[in-house]
Design a protein around this nucleic acid. Structure first.
Length: 132
RNA sequence: AAUGCAAGCCGUUCUAUCGCUGCGAUUUAUCGGAGAGGAAAGUCCGGGCAACACAGAGCAUCUCGCUUCCUAACGGGAAGAGGUUUGGGAAUGAAGACCUGAAUUAUGGAAAGUGCCACAGAAAAUACACCGCCGAUGGCUUUUAAGUACAGGUAAGGUUGAAAUCGUGAGGUAAGAGCUCACGAAUGUUCCUGGCAACAGGUAUAUUGGUAAACCCCGGGAGUUGAAAGACCAAAUAGGCUAACGCAUGUAGGGCUGCUCGUCCGAUGUUAGUGGGUAGGUCGUUAGAGGUAAAUGGCGACGUUUACAGUAGAUUAAUGAUAGAAGUUUCUUUAAUGAAAUACAGAACCCGGCUUACAGGCUUGCAUUUUUU
RNA sequence: GCUUUCGUAGUUCAAUGGAUAGAAUGUCAGAUUCCGGUUCUGAUGAUGGGGGUUCGAAUCCCUUCGAGAGCA
C-alpha cells in the first residue's frame, strides 16, 4: 500500500510541465536535479512526479530506460518515509521533476541513498519556504 | 583432432517478496492469466492503410537498367548468360585458343550528337609530320647518273604515356599504307542451327582508341504528404462554413505538384440554417500478403493443401527492483573452493526485404597442419 | 515517428576528376633583445572509416560512423 506508484502520481499534463519548468524552484544534488512547485488544484494525489534522463548524455535507449527504472524504484521506496510524512494536508498539489544528470551507469544502492538525501533536502527547502 | 574462412540456427533459466501496463472474472478490492528482438536499430528500398480535386494530359525532375522466374511489390531473392581476376588439367619448342574449379561483377547504347583525356609525347582523335624514309611526278643544281634547307608524298621504325589508329606474314610501292591477299582478334548487321530468353556455334558482309558511377539517347517506374495521416465525442469564447437572392465581362484574385494546359472556387450586401481552431478523451491500434507442423509440386527462390495454437499494445510513454539458486566462460588452485564476467541491444500504425552491431554455443561445407589405419 | 544538411592541418576556411592538397592562425626551433613582446627565417601537421567506377578520386557512386537543423 505504501509502495505503490500508480498513474495518478505521475505528471502527464503538458500545461503543468510548462508551468513547472518556467516558475518552479530547483536545486542540484548529484546525480539528481530536483524541480518543484505548488499548485492550488488537487484531486487524488498529493504529489505528481516526472522522471527524466537526458538523451544528450545517454545515447542508447537501453541505458536511459535502465536509469529511469532505477530512479523510479528508488522514489517508490522512499516517497512515504521522506516526503509524504512531511507534507501537511494543505490541499495543494506538489509538482515534482527528477532529472538524472550523471555520466555513468550507477548501481541501485548508490542511487537509492542519493535520492533519499535529495528528498530530505527538498522537504527542508519547502518548510523554509512556508515559514518565510 | 586443432586452426582459419563461409553459410545457417540458438542466443541464459528457475524460486520468493515488493511493484508497473493491458485483458478476463466478479464479492468493488481481490483473484486469474499475458507482457521486447534477431536485429525491436539505421531509415536505405518496396507495399498496405489514410487524407488531399478519388489525382487528369504534356513537359521538367528523380530513379532503375544482361535474361528468365519468384513475389502484393521492390533497388530484394532464385536459377542461368556474359565480363574480369585467379588455381588446376592436357597439348605445344613457347604462348594463345581448349577443358575444368573458385572468387567477383550497377552488365542497355560510344555505329545519334556534344564534352573530356592532366604531365609527358611529333601527335590524345579531321593524325597541322619532331627524328626518320622517299623525292617516282613537277621544280632546282647538274654530267644521262646523282643530289636536295623546293613543291610535296609517307603512319614501316623511334622516343612518351593508362591508352598511339587491330596483330603476324606475303604481295605491292619511289618510300609506304587493310591498299590487296592468307591466317587470326574484336564489334555491328543479315541468314541458319540450339536455347523460353540472355546467349552460344556457324555463314555472309561491313567496320576497327577510351570514358555514359560526364552530359546525353533508348526503355521501364514514380501524383503529393505521412499515424504528429485521419475519423468521431465535447464545456466556454473569438471567428468560420453551407444554401438562396443580388452585384459582376464568372472580372480582380486564389486553390489543385515545380511549370504549362486543363479544371475548380470566387470580393462586398441581405435572409435562413449549421457549427467547433486549441487543451482533453475514444477510435485508427494490433488476426496479419501472420506463425508452427506435416504432406505435396518445383533444380531453386517459392507455391498449394490440411491440421494446430491464440501470441505485447504503452502514449511524459509498462515490461522493473531486491534476495537466493542453477547454467556457461575466464582467472587462480594439486583438487575442492574462491573471484570476476554473462554479448549486441528496448516495441510505438502494420508488413516484406537490405544494411549494420553481436559474448558464447551448435550444425554443415571448404582449406591447411598433425596423428592413426 | 518523418524530413533534411554537413564532415579537409590543433582552429577558421580554400581547392574545375590531374603539382608534393593551399592560406591565415596556432605549436615548436632558430635569429633579433640585457629579458620579454613585436618582427624575420625554418619546421610541424589534414581529406571521418570501408568498398567501387576511372589511367588517375578530397571531388563521382554505394555503404557505414559521427555532428547538426526542421516538422507540435
Amino acid at each position: 500500500m505504501k509502495k505503490t506508484f500508480s498513474k495518478e502520481e505521475r505528471l502527464c499534463s503538458r500545461k503543468s510541465l510548462d508551468l513547472l519548468f518556467k516558475n518552479g524552484s530547483s536545486f542540484l544534488l548529484y546525480p539528481f536535479r530536483i524541480s518543484s512547485l505548488f499548485v492550488p488544484a488537487a484531486d487524488a494525489a498529493a504529489v505528481e512526479v516526472v522522471i527524466n534522463v537526458a538523451k544528450k548524455r545517454y545515447k542508447r535507449a537501453v541505458d536511459r530506460n535502465l536509469l529511469k527504472r532505477r530512479t523510479r524504484e528508488a522514489y517508490r521506496f522512499h516517497k512515504q518515509e521522506h516526503l509524504y510524512n512531511h507534507l501537511k494536508d494543505s490541499g495543494k498539489l506538489l509538482l515534482l521533476s527528477i532529472q538524472f544528470i550523471g555520466k555513468e551507469k550507477h548501481e541501485f544502492s548508490f542511487m537509492e541513498k542519493k535520492l533519499a538525501a535529495a528528498l530530505k533536502k527538498l522537504c527542508a527547502n519547502l518548510e523554509l519556504h512556508e515559514i518565510s
